[in-house]
Structures are given as C-alpha cells and as structure tokens.
Simulated scan of single mutants.
Amino acid sequence: MTDTTNRRVIDARSLISDDTRATLVANMRDKFPQLTEEKADRGVGQMLAFLAACAYSKRPLSPSPLVDDFWHAFLLHTKAYREFCAETFGRFLDHQPGYLDPEEHGGGRALRAGTVDCITLAGYEIDMEFWPELDLAHCSQCHANCSDSPNHPAIHS
C-alpha cells in the first residue's frame, strides 16, 4: 500500500516556462472558447502530468480525450515540445494513437484509471475534471480499487 499522507504533490505546470504555458492556454482557448483561462491552465497541468507519467512508465498509458487535446496543442509547437522532452525526460515522447488490445491492457476506462494511478504515484496532482469518464471524484469508500487498495490489480510499471 502506498502512503500518500506525507508526500509532496507536484504541480506539473512548473515543468514548463510561464511563456510556453501562456501560449498553450491561449491556443486551447482559441480552439475551445468555452474554456476559462483558469481551466485551460489546469488542463495544461494535467497534460504535463500525463507526459511525466508516460516518460517513466513501462506500460502503456492513455490520456482522456480532453487531456489529449492539450497534448495536441503542445505538439503543434514542435520546437518547444522537442526541447521540453529533451530537457525534462532526456528523450522525445512520441504521440502514437492506436489500438491497444483490451484483453492485455483493459478497455479505455481501465487504461485511463491505470494512467491516473501512475500520475498519482509519480507524485503529480490529479484534477478529476480532466478525467471525467472515471468518475472517481465522488469516491468515499475505502478499498474501492484505487491505487492504494488491496483490491487494485498489480501495477507493472
């Protein structure tokens, strides 16, 4: 069981410069006018937390559709994205959409639940508004198959 009571939670938005973050926020607000600046900024953070988990996980991870939209916005700034990957992870993180066998990796929801677990275990903040299909924000019971639960399948990361 993972003890999260004394762990420092990392805000992934600190992984990029304020200028790059402002550019991504503006890009997402242009594409999705209903996004507030505050929500777009939080979305950038969730995308960066996802990328950080991907850089260290040995198993496939999957963004939510909204987090994927933020990743696409970053990918369009290829030079900034390439430099971010090199400086932060020491390698380029490819975006490779494709089919993952549900028998091997679980369905989309299971894969994203594992992704959220990996992000959390890596120490990054999770904003459940960006992972709506998981509906875990209202969980109030112990051992509900979250990363600390003895009912949770073993993570091989």
Rank of each mutant, 00 (worst) to 15 (best):
residue 89 F to D: 01
residue 151 N to G: 08
residue 105 H to F: 15
residue 44 V to C: 10
residue 27 N to M: 12
residue 100 L to C: 05
residue 68 D to H: 06
residue 10 I to L: 11
residue 118 C to P: 00
residue 18 D to S: 12
residue 150 P to L: 14
residue 147 S to D: 09
residue 67 V to N: 01
residue 69 D to M: 15
residue 152 H to L: 03
residue 52 A to E: 09
residue 8 R to M: 07
residue 54 C to V: 15
residue 45 G to K: 03
residue 108 G to A: 14
residue 1 M to L: 13
residue 103 E to A: 11
residue 23 T to I: 13
residue 92 F to Q: 09
residue 76 L to P: 00
residue 64 S to E: 05
residue 131 W to D: 03
residue 74 F to L: 11
residue 129 E to Y: 10
residue 147 S to T: 13
residue 96 Q to G: 05
residue 121 L to I: 15
residue 6 N to Q: 12
residue 71 W to C: 05
residue 46 Q to D: 01
residue 90 G to H: 04
residue 56 Y to I: 15
residue 152 H to T: 09
residue 65 P to L: 07
residue 9 V to S: 08
residue 38 E to F: 11
residue 146 C to G: 10
residue 22 A to M: 03
residue 20 T to H: 09
residue 127 D to P: 00
residue 63 P to W: 07
residue 136 L to D: 06
residue 147 S to N: 08
residue 109 R to K: 14
residue 22 A to D: 09
residue 157 S to M: 10
residue 60 P to N: 10
residue 153 P to I: 11
residue 65 P to K: 08
residue 6 N to K: 14
residue 131 W to L: 06
residue 114 G to C: 04
residue 5 T to F: 05
residue 115 T to D: 01
residue 47 M to R: 05
residue 33 P to Y: 02
residue 118 C to D: 13
residue 36 T to S: 14
residue 14 S to Q: 12
residue 47 M to K: 09
residue 146 C to A: 07
residue 52 A to D: 06
residue 67 V to D: 01
residue 64 S to A: 12
residue 26 A to G: 10
residue 146 C to Y: 10
residue 10 I to F: 05
residue 132 P to W: 14
residue 130 F to Y: 10
residue 7 R to M: 12
residue 109 R to L: 14
residue 2 T to S: 03
residue 143 H to V: 09
residue 32 F to L: 08
residue 105 H to V: 14
residue 138 H to S: 15
residue 117 D to P: 02
residue 16 I to A: 04
residue 112 R to H: 03
residue 48 L to S: 04
residue 46 Q to P: 03
residue 115 T to Q: 01
residue 122 A to Q: 10
residue 88 T to L: 01
residue 33 P to T: 05
residue 96 Q to W: 03
residue 124 Y to K: 03
residue 18 D to E: 14
residue 114 G to I: 02
residue 69 D to R: 14
residue 65 P to R: 03
residue 106 G to D: 09
residue 62 S to H: 07
residue 5 T to K: 06
residue 153 P to G: 06
residue 145 N to A: 15
residue 35 L to Y: 13
residue 41 D to A: 12
residue 45 G to H: 07
residue 22 A to S: 13
residue 9 V to F: 08
residue 138 H to Q: 12
residue 145 N to I: 15
residue 2 T to P: 02
residue 73 A to I: 07
residue 98 G to I: 08
residue 144 A to I: 06
residue 58 K to P: 01
residue 27 N to E: 11
residue 129 E to T: 14
residue 40 A to H: 08
residue 34 Q to G: 00
residue 106 G to S: 09
residue 64 S to D: 06
residue 7 R to E: 14
residue 104 E to C: 03
residue 150 P to M: 09
residue 70 F to R: 02
residue 89 F to L: 02
residue 20 T to M: 11
residue 154 A to V: 15
residue 110 A to Q: 09
residue 67 V to C: 04
residue 42 R to M: 08
residue 32 F to E: 04
residue 128 M to G: 07
residue 90 G to E: 04
residue 28 M to Q: 13
residue 134 L to T: 07
residue 14 S to V: 14
residue 126 I to Q: 03
residue 107 G to L: 06
residue 60 P to M: 09
residue 15 L to S: 05
residue 99 Y to V: 12
residue 89 F to Q: 02
residue 150 P to G: 08
residue 101 D to W: 11
residue 13 R to D: 01
residue 13 R to C: 05
residue 19 D to F: 11
residue 41 D to F: 08
residue 60 P to A: 14
residue 21 R to W: 00
residue 157 S to F: 13
residue 67 V to G: 02
residue 95 H to W: 11
residue 49 A to E: 04
